[in-house]
Nucleic acid binder design. Structure first.
Length: 730
DNA sequence: GACCTGCTGCGGCCTG
């Protein structure tokens, strides 16, 4: 290998030996190209490569080579590598793999998360060394609880590794991670090279800017050019019956989808992504019924975030075990790179939530050499009846699914949203940093977190306003000399372990059957004893509800209904809506559609033209006026807010904005007037919106600051005005 | 009509 590989020659002899012992005949593309960049450590690096392409090794082989050389020189104290991962389960998977490599080099590996053994954590505090695998929340806890040890632990840090970068970018948790890494660097008093790993990045510039805020252009991107494997793709169409289904009976479309899943997937390992926990329960139940009727063992298992850890681990274990075929019906819980072995195929019921998510889901299949990745997408559309509206006739679900597949084929993914101010997480970081430093002045905090830190989009006046809000709510109090310390409410928040997470979780009821916890259920309306329930893919009856202990007791039953999970909607990207619009105007028929889906595509296009969508975007629909902007949800939301400020009764219905008290002519006139005038200030527009409390600590923010946060998170005024100009021709 | 993630210290009990 040495002759062909430049990277190999750069590795430490002990690393070379480790590779030799593995019997590798070559290094992967990303491993080859990342080695020198990482070893010199001059630049931060993003390694973008498909799942199972050796990303972890691409980062760790050169990093461990550097550590081994340092060790040869007898240099080094403290943790050398900080490896941050979004999931405890991922840390556990990686821990075993990394121990193998590190063990060969006499490097110590520690894992630190909520379920990790306490002995390892004590050892990190006592004699910090080697590689530390940790979650953002545990790193937060470490900084808050052991401020006096931070310099000793991280003073000699050589590298930071961020796994699954895409799962952090643009989120509150991502803002927390940025702040934590920045605070670690501040403690070490130098820049520490960052290496990030991801399989689905559509926008390298955005990801780079996320990894190194304000200096994204200096981040090196190693995007693997290894060809992805073959993909076998099918979109299957199903007709929803027009009449409402009889409650206890399976609707015809769901029954047909379940029949096909059962016939196609039985006896093999598969993942079925059903988009919601309720749908997971419905399909797990329908497939189990089919297995029972056929006298087959239960091999269709539910997996989602409300199921107990033990239940989920059982499913994961059965997936890993290649001897017994299992199909997991899941939400996004099995989307990330959890090691569940490899599956024969992936199914997606309904349009996927995002193109990046679809790519990630597809990556779970086709990991065996020579086997293609298999993806089946099931889409149900309503039966066409007389008196259809311009909205109904479009078969929007199918068009969204196909548009997303086309974007996937073109390697387009949603860019991380870098516009947000993340003020809720800023509040958390202000409190945390104040404790870590034993008090801080407003100027020090602004400098640490905003001016030089990741919250650089928060200007000085906004930061000052946030601090005033924190003072008003007693999260902070100011000493006579100007030093800020946690106030009464701040101490209360810091005292509870829930402080370490940047996100909020609801109070749930625990579901218990025969003393065994099945999972938890967020309950909005009271659940009464006697209620039938489907949960964990099985049928139950509620025996008792203990609202003090928040426990619901269940017993096995013959009947059942899926529970209602509350939830808020996601955001469809602008490019997806544009791709849908192109698809309606095109005549191309993708080869991966089955006969029904092909008919539905033709029907959708016929509806598009018959109702005049090709030439107009504003229609009368019964007593209402409907507007089709063909834009992403953020622009749709902005348009809806703008129209509402002009006294219109506005609603949103998928692709359309509905207006209750205005004729098409009046709406066209208003749009013409708006497009000709100046765009409003985003903050002023946000002031007209009612419910703006969104994230964990938003409730401490004053109206004025909340407006700024809402404008940054939910409004796109320039995009909306460009759309209004376009709509004047409609 | 989405989804997901994570967190400590300590008291009490059991076992070797």
């Amino acid at each position: 290998m040495a002759e062909q590989s430049q990277a190999y020659t750069l590795y430490h002899p002990a690393v070379q030996r480790w590779i030799y012992q593995r019997g590798w005949d070559r290094l992967r593309d990303a491993q080859e190209r990342a080695a020198e960049l990482i070893i010199t450590g001059e630049r931060d690096v993003i390694i973008a490569s498909a799942t199972a392409n050796g990303k972890t090794e691409a980062a760790l082989l050169p990093i461990c080579s550097v550590l081994a050389h340092k060790q040869d020189l007898g240099v080094g104290a403290g943790v050398a590598v900080l490896y941050v991962s979004p999931l405890k389960a991922l840390i556990n998977d990686q821990y075993d793999r990394i121990c193998d490599l590190a063990g060969a080099l006499d490097l110590v590996v520690h894992r630190w998360h909520g379920d990790a053994p306490a002995a390892g954590k004590a050892r990190v505090l006592r004699t910090p060394a080697g590689l530390l695998l940790i979650t953002p929340e545990s790193l937060e806890a470490l900084l808050v609880r052991h401020p006096d040890r931070i310099r000793r632990i991280f003073g000699g840090l050589r590298y930071v590794v961020v796994d699954e970068l895409h799962s952090f970018a643009g989120t509150e948790r991502g803002a927390q991670l940025q702040a934590l890494l920045h605070r670690v660097e501040a403690a070490a008093a130098r820049r520490i090279p960052r290496v990030a790993l991801s399989a689905t990045l559509g926008d390298y510039a955005g990801a780079a800017e996320f990894l190194r805020p304000r200096h994204g252009s200096q981040v090196a991107v190693v995007a693997s050019t290894e060809p992805g494997g073959e993909i076998r793709l099918q979109v299957r169409g199903y007709l929803q019956p027009a009449a409402p289904a009889v409650p206890e009976k399976e609707p015809a479309d769901r029954a047909a989808i379940a029949d096909h899943l059962f016939q196609t997937l039985r006896g093999t390992d598969n993942l079925v992504f059903a988009n919601s926990r309720a749908a997971v329960e419905v399909y797990a139940d329908m497939l189990t019924q089919r297995a029972v009727r056929s006298g087959l063992p239960a091999t269709f298992l539910a997996h989602h975030g409300s199921l107990a850890k033990e239940v989920r681990e059982h499913v994961e274990q059965r997936l890993k075990d290649s001897a017994t075929p299992v199909t997991a019906i899941c939400t996004s819980t099995l989307e990330l790179g959890l090691d569940v072995g490899t599956v024969d195929s992936v199914a997606q019921i309904g349009a996927p939530p995002s193109v990046a998510g679809l790519r990630q889901r597809l990556g779970r299949s086709g990991r065996r050499p020579g086997r293609p990745a298999v993806l089946r997408v099931y889409v149900a559309e309503p039966e066409l009846t007389a008196g259809l509206s311009p909205t109904d006739a479009l078969r929007a679900e199918l068009f969204q699914a196909v548009a997303m597949i086309e974007l996937l084929i073109a390697s387009w993914y949603e860019a991380p949203d870098t516009a947000g101010l993340h003020l809720s997480t800023l509040i958390q970081q202000v409190l945390s940093a104040t404790v870590q430093h034993g008090g801080a002045t407003a100027a020090q905090l602004f400098d640490l977190l905003c001016a030089r830190g990741p919250f650089h989009r928060v200007d000085r006046p906004t930061f000052a306003a946030v601090l005033r809000d924190l003072g008003r709510h007693e999260l902070l109090e100011q000493q006579p000399g100007g030093l800020l310390l946690p106030g009464r409410e701040g101490e209360r928040l810091l005292a509870h372990y829930s402080f370490y997470a940047s996100f909020r979780t609801s109070m749930d009821y625990r579901l218990v059957a025969d003393g065994y916890t099945l999972g938890s259920l967020p309950v909005d309306r009271p659940i009464l004893p006697g209620t039938f329930l489907i949960f964990g893919g099985a049928r139950w009856r509620v025996i008792s509800v203990d609202s003090a202990q928040r426990v619901i007791e269940l017993t096995a039953a013959e009947a059942g209904r899926p529970p209602v999970f509350p939830g808020t909607g996601g955001e469809v990207a602008d490019e997806v809506r544009r791709a849908m619009h192109r698809l309606y105007r095109s005549t191309a028929v993708p080869r991966y559609l089955d006969a029904t889906a092909r008919t539905m595509l033709a029907e959708g296009r016929a509806g598009f033209h018959a109702y005049g969508h090709a030439t107009s975007r504003i229609f009368a629909q019964q007593a209402e006026t409907v507007l089709f902007p063909w834009r992403g949800d953020r622009i749709m939301n902005t348009l809806a807010v703008v129209l509402a400020t002009h006294g219109l009764t506005v609603g949103q219905d998928g692709l359309a904005i509905t207006v209750g008290n205005c004729s098409p002519t009046q709406l066209r006139e208003l749009i013409r007037k708006l497009a000709a005038g100046p765009a409003p200030e985003p903050d002023a527009l946000a002031a007209t919106v009612r419910a703006k409390v969104h994230d964990k600590y938003d409730r401490y923010l004053s109206e004025e600051v909340l407006n700024r946060a809402y404008a940054a998170r939910a409004l796109d005024v320039p995009g909306a005005w460009a759309t209004l100009v376009e709509l004047t021709g409609a």
